[in-house]
Design a protein around this nucleic acid. Sequence first.
DNA 1: AAGTGGTCTAGACCACTAG
DNA 2: TAGTGGTCTAGACCACTTT
Lengths: 260, 260
Amino acid sequence: MAAQRGSKVALHRWIKEQLERKFGAGSLAPGQRLPSESEIMNSFGVSRHVVRLALAELAKEGVIHTERGRGSFVNPPKEIHPITSLTSYHTLMEERSLDASIRVLRNRPVTVTKALATRLGLVDGEQVVELIRVGRISGKPAVLMVSHLPYSLCKGLPARDMNTGSLYEYLEDECGLSLAYAENYIEVAFATREQARYLGVSPGSTLLLIEGLVYDQSGQPVEFSRVFYRGDRFKLFFESTKEDGVPGTKVRIGGRTSPL
Amino acid sequence: MAAQRGSKVALHRWIKEQLERKFGAGSLAPGQRLPSESEIMNSFGVSRHVVRLALAELAKEGVIHTERGRGSFVNPPKEIHPITSLTSYHTLMEERSLDASIRVLRNRPVTVTKALATRLGLVDGEQVVELIRVGRISGKPAVLMVSHLPYSLCKGLPARDMNTGSLYEYLEDECGLSLAYAENYIEVAFATREQARYLGVSPGSTLLLIEGLVYDQSGQPVEFSRVFYRGDRFKLFFESTKEDGVPGTKVRIGGRTSPL
DNA sequence: AAGTGGTCTAGACCACTAG
DNA sequence: TAGTGGTCTAGACCACTTT
């Protein structure tokens, strides 16, 4: 191999492009193993460092992933997921009942942190219910949902089995709350060690984060939620429709999940 | 320094945490320079490689950025931006008229690619208008907007100066189109060399991508757009309101941009 | 010219996986 | 045990920025 390494493009970028060309989607099926790092080293005649830089770049982009002691493998294409806000993950589950499930990791009262107290309009020392759930699709961890709710509004929540049932239905039907609106922020985040463990990715992986603050009809904050998706595995979908002269756009969340 | 490097956490991760603690937001103001790589090497007594791994991790997360020949610098916090779909960037400009602007990079007819033809319902060989614009906020590149529209629907577009005025207003007022709805996908992307140049980031940087396919009232595809935001600098904002028994959620796009 | 980050080599040891 | 990826060291040269 070796080939002409003309011009000024960095060697590891060039190697990355070669690997993408040879093993990218299409030429190698999802799940297939790439050559080992030492094999790539030899075939291109470069040091291990540049091979690792190239593979790391491909992994960051979600094209491949690596497993210690096993090798690097081609990833399947991204899943498409309707944006989750006020319409819960549970609603999605009902649509794809066969392969979606929820597992509760934590459901217990804790003392608020300062940042949480500000968001939920609580004072220092108050209690909130911390509800942490992992949503699985086809058995694989897909989404990490972290919710915090004022304990005073849902004292019965920690005792409740949230492995089934919608959180929002519970809040409305059994806590007498009437959810009205939410402010949401979508951003890129990176997996902490704990999040990485739950989502089955390596620490520092790219995540899509939807942060939401849900309000009661009285304007009282009811839930602060953070929903983490694997950035290499998901697209968020929403459908928007334009209505008359309104200086904004109406969006229906939770449209179809058909492929692009 | 050196300190106890007990247990099993990787050295570069530990260094990263130390740096974050010492120089993270709060202790060092945005724009301030961090110690050089060799200074960090010496102060921790580690090799340059682990220092670079730690700095790269911080850069990926948007905490810092590095400039060749100059050093590493603390980043300002993320901007908050309402989701752009059907309501154009131009609308945002009007809201913050002082510091937002658009610059057109390309506006010309080209032959469709296969992927584009599929999305826009065109046949091979047809022409589309390629409109590429960079939105700036406070003079700095903020968002890269890449639009493709069937040439037959807007023959006058390439001759039009799109540095001012809204694309959607142009389509409705001067092309006789009535925009109805759009399908949108939000995902993580990574900057190509070209995108990186336009956005003032390094290749491979994390981006937030909104892909949108906008339809006419007759159901005809009118525009395929891709809007790229710097992932380390932006949050997308939307507000959702729940309405009666609809199995979905109404979202008003383009709410206020007040800070979290 | 001096200092900075960007790239690359060579070699080592470790942790994990699989036969 | 052999092979894999994960981590780390030491040293080198280059491209770029600043003085």
